[in-house]
Design a protein around this nucleic acid. Structure first.
Length: 225
DNA sequence: CCAGACGTTGTT
DNA sequence: GTCTGG
DNA sequence: CCAGACGTTGTT
DNA sequence: GTCTGG
């Protein structure tokens, strides 16, 4: 069994939870690995619920809808703009699934970096206080226009950040206009796309054995964006 | 003023 | 058909 | 996104 | 909490 933490620690310069289970089929409302930076710029790795629950929410159900945020409107949308200015994060995944048309009908594809490194999606996070001492931390993944490699399959894709862009995205002092500039599609040659079994994306299927076409070696991956 | 949304994707 | 949950 | 439910009364 | 629509 894989222990991706050492690799993540090396790639992103963080320490984190004692263990990180490999995941193959993460759905909204489930935990994803994310990196945040404090006021001094010190990074930490935490598990956040995928699906943003704003601080004013009456219950968590709104998070089922706020799973993605469009880069084009993130600075204005009431549900996202505060997080955009103050609570940015990186959502980590070894790849992501996307559904596209094939001659045989709709099928899922697995998108991952050729380098085999972990991807960092641009994300936003929020803290929500429920009844009593309940504190829920959640996140949304930012989407942007698909690059040439992916557009055959899907019109949109998560905003993937290079190492330089990651630091810039997390830094408090980066101006808003510059932050928006970072949310571009990944360069063409860095991602590979492979068709995989339809068992992917059924929330009931999580085990690696169910997805023979996908050999995941790093941490978490999201399904769909 | 109060009520209700606060979001994206994809499809027609 | 449409909404909710994962 | 896809999968799966789509409902109430009453009881624990 | 804050904005939009009625």
């Amino acid at each position: 069994m894989f222990t991706p933490l050492a690799e993540i620690a090396r790639q992103f310069g963080v320490s984190g939870p004692a263990s990180l289970e490999p995941r193959y089929n993460i759905a909204p409302s489930q935990s994803v690995a994310a990196i945040r930076a404090d006021a001094e710029g010190l990074r930490s790795l935490d598990m956040l619920r995928w699906g943003l629950v704003p601080h004013w929410a009456k219950d968590v159900s709104i998070g089922n809808r706020l799973i993605n945020a469009r880069a084009e409107t993130i600075a204005e949308k009431p549900a996202f703009r505060q997080a955009f200015s103050r609570r940015r994060c990186l959502v980590l995944a070894s790849g992501f699934y996307e559904w596209g048309e094939t001659p045989a009908g709709k099928a899922p594809f697995f998108v991952s970096p050729r380098s085999g490194e972990c991807l960092a999606f641009a994300g936003l996070w929020e803290q929500w206080r429920g009844g009593g001492d309940t504190v829920l931390e959640s996140c949304a993944i930012i989407t942007t226009t698909a690059n040439a490699t992916l557009t055959k399959v899907h019109q949109r894709m998560p905003a993937i950040l290079t190492a330089d862009a990651q630091a810039c995205w997390l830094a408090d002092e980066t101006p808003a206009a510059e932050r928006l500039q970072l949310l571009q599609a990944a360069p063409e040659d860095q991602l590979e796309v492979r068709q995989v079994q339809r068992t992917v994306n059924n929330p009931r299927n999580e085990g690696a054995g169910l997805i023979n076409a996908v050999a995941v070696k790093a941490a978490d991956q999201t399904h769909e964006v």
